[in-house]
Amino acid sequence: MADKIHLKMTVNGQPVETLAEPRELLIHVLRERLDITGPHIGCETTHCGACTVDLDGKSVKSCTVFAAQADGAEITTVEGIGSPDKLHVLQEMFREHHGLQCGFCTPGMITRAWRLLQENPTPSEEEIRFGMAGNLCRCTGYQNIVKAIMAAATEMNAAKEAAE
C-alpha cells in the first residue's frame, strides 16, 4: 500500500476519501473506486468529452487528469446536478428538446453546459457552438443539444429575474 496515495475530495457536495495509485486517472477513481458511473469513458484522449466533470469551477476531461491533481478539489459530476426525480432545468431541457439519442455523451454534455451557462448565462448560438465543441456526439447532429442549452439559458434567466 505504500505506493498508494491518500486522496480527500468533495464530490457532489459529499466529502470522500480514497486511496489511489499515483498515476491513476480521475475517471477511473470516480467510476471504479467511488461507483460514480455517470461520467463515461469514450476515447481516453481528451477528445470526446464523455468523461467531462467539473473540477473547482472548471470543466475538465477526467480521462486526462490524474486523481492526485484532484486532491482537495471540489468535483461535480452529472449526478450532482440533478436526479431523475428532481431534474435540473438544464436536464429537463435536454429531455424535452430531444438533446440526446444513445445518451452516452449526455452526462459530459450536461456537465459542460452547466458550467458554460455559469461562465456565460446568456450565450448566443455561436457561443454555444464553440463552447461545446470539446464534447462529441455521434447521434444527434448537435441541433437539439444547442436548442436545449438555449432553452435552459432562457428558463434560468427568467427564474433569476423572477427571484430578484
Binding site: 458511473t37 461520467p39 449526455t106
Partner: peptide
Amino acid sequence: PHDAAALHVTGQARYVD
C-alpha cells in the same frame, strides 16, 4: 421524449461498463 431521457441526463442510464 426518449424513454430513458431522465436516466440519461442524470447519468443513471446503465451501459455494459
